[in-house]
């Protein structure tokens, strides 16, 4: 019986074209559409799998942003017991230090045996939330996990290394794990189940103390790669193309 907390967040959905804000320092969030961070979705799946296997309770905590309620109801339909959204001004984006503080503060109240989170997210890529939460709560952290077995007071975790090697390590609980992949891919949950949850399940709101923005990194410039005009289409029949190619190769000193 473990008390498992999954800390997750919504990230920009890449099906929409990304726009840069007027300052050129980040995304124009007015045009963003958010989706569950893929790694976080695996963390949720791993949490539900552990609950199904070992018993216990799963609490999912996510900052309040567009679409977070639908996402939380979906996790409820998958089998999460408690859903909490962090009330605060997250819409404009926060740095990971601030976010990790908010997560740690709320997660602590649930006396977790295990905190699972996605190992990284598409809007930060360096994966600091897990380690930061672990630091703030004084727990050990292991990242890039793709399998978890719970034992008395400890967890055996699996981690895949390049070259097909698998490392197995033991960590004392409570601990924070950065999930690379759940043991099973995130399950499909039927819409009628989600809709049922929308009627019956409740999402709790957790007040957090002032978001502390200090200590984060900020982008000096964010931009889309500029298209370079390097390709030249050669037109004509075979003879012409061949002749043109030869002259190009000569020009480049290759012939």
């Amino acid at each position: 019986m473990a008390n498992i907390v999954a800390i997750v967040k919504m990230v920009p959905d890449l099906v929409e074209e990304l726009e840069i804000n007027d300052e050129g320092t980040g995304l124009d969030r007015d045009w963003l559409r958010l989706i569950i961070n893929e790694f976080d979705n695996h963390a949720i799946e791993q949490a539900i799998l552990l609950k199904e296997r070992e018993g216990g309770e799963v609490t999912v905590i996510a900052p309040e942003t567009e679409g977070v309620e639908d996402m939380l109801f979906t996790t409820a339909a998958k089998g999460a017991d408690r859903m909490i959204k962090l009330a605060g001004d997250f819409e404009e984006g926060v740095n990971n230090h601030a976010l990790a503080h908010a997560f740690a503060e709320t997660a602590k109240n649930h006396q977790p045996d295990l905190i699972l989170t996605g190992v990284q997210a598409n809007d930060d890529l360096d994966g600091p939330v897990g380690p930061l939460v672990a630091e703030y709560l004084g727990m050990p952290y292991i990242g890039y996990i793709s399998g978890v077995t719970l034992e008395e007071g400890r967890a055996i975790v699996r981690k895949e290394y390049p070259g097909g090697l698998i490392g197995e390590m033991e960590v004392t609980l409570p601990a924070v794990l950065g999930i690379q992949a759940g043991e099973e891919p995130p399950r499909y949950v039927a819409i009628s189940k989600v809709r049922q949850m929308m009627k019956t399940a409740e999402i709790a709101e957790a007040e957090i103390s002032e978001l502390d923005f200090s200590g984060g990194i900020s982008a000096k410039r964010m931009y889309l790669p500029e298209a370079a005009e390097r390709a030249e289409m050669i037109e004509g029949d075979e003879e012409e193309i061949a002749a043109k190619l030869i002259s190009i190769f000569k020009e480049a000193g290759a012939l």
């Binding site: 891919p185 499909y188 039927a190």
Partner: peptide, 28 residues
Amino acid sequence: LVIEGMVDAELQTALTNLGRYGNSFGKS
């Protein structure tokens, strides 16, 4: 089978896309 989540990966992707974007292609 659907309510139990017993769907194959490709179908799952299509259904998830349909739920989110209203089309199976996963486009906006």
